[in-house]
Amino acid sequence: MSNTPSLSVADRQVNWTDRLPPRLRPYAMLARWDRPIGTWLLLLPCWAGLALAPGLPDPVLLVAFAIGAVAMRGAGCTVNDMADRDFDRRVERTRARPLASGALTLTQAGLFTLAQAAVGGLVLLVLPWPAVLITLLALPLVVIYPFMKRITWWPQAFLGLTFNWGILVGGVAAGAPWPAILLLYAGSIAWTIGYDTIYAHQDKADDALIGVRSTARLFGERTHGWLLLLYATTISGWAAAGWLAGKGPVFLAILLLIALYLFREARTVPIDDPAACLNAFRRHRWVGLALVAGLALDGWMIGT
């Protein structure tokens, strides 16, 4: 493990993991602790589901979902890297990942997955049983998602189904109306396809060489038109969900700002500039935070 201190990836966001003991750094990379944007994009749909209900979200559930998002995102990334280690060795951006580089073995990664899943499982202790059941129904999606890029041009759609499942869990846990939950989920799936298509444009050249499929490769030069369609679906789903949940002018005002941002991005994002694509992808944390804020503030006003 003498080489682990030099492990790095091109798209890392934070470097506190460099201060970990050398033996732990590959695990931090495997769980993407140095790139928290994925954790945010997994967590924010959970919080949005909670915020659909009247009143402010339960702080215990907010914290529980945060812990669960860190653990389950890490477990999902570990499983993904186990499945993709041969592909990752052939892609410039991913060849330094711990399994692709040989810093960790499959056995070590498997044990790490179980440990993270056990931490994530603790969240179930604070959920009502219907929400627990819905959480468990997501497991097939978690298992099959890493393999979708091999068999379909739409792996981003399966990511959307998986990453936004927390809307169903959070909405049921908070007692939000089912029609609103489902419409928020549908809009968020379109949102995820959009932002992950932008992300996938970073790797489209390498993906074409090794046979990995994605909506970035499928859409190609038509990506901007597809993004407009996807984001129009997103805003429509979110607006309908808010209306059915009884949200009012605060939510609608924030949703209008989100729509203006998304439509501008859809028209202007430079899909042939990997650094710009990565930055655009990262900014979707603020889109999700704005959605949660709009739902929660309006829910607080309704509740009072």
Rank of each mutant, 00 (worst) to 15 (best):
V60G: 14
D207S: 11
S188Y: 07
L30W: 05
S8I: 08
A31N: 01
W129E: 14
G220W: 08
A51Y: 10
M1E: 09
L159C: 05
A118Y: 02
A240W: 12
L41F: 07
V287E: 00
V212A: 14
W178T: 15
S236Y: 06
A69V: 02
L43A: 04
G76R: 02
W226Y: 15
L136N: 01
W153Q: 13
Q13V: 15
A180F: 10
A109F: 02
L137N: 04
I189Y: 09
G121E: 02
V60H: 13
A240Y: 03
A186W: 10
I151K: 08
A131K: 02
G121Y: 01
G288C: 05
L229F: 09
F112W: 13
A71N: 00
I189V: 15
L184E: 09
W47Y: 05
A253L: 15
R19G: 15
L256K: 00
Q13M: 15
A75C: 00
L289Q: 04
R85M: 11
V269E: 10
R85D: 10
I144G: 07
W16A: 09
A83P: 04
R85E: 12
R12I: 13
R89E: 06
P36T: 05
A190Y: 02
G303C: 12
G248L: 12
P45K: 09
D196K: 04
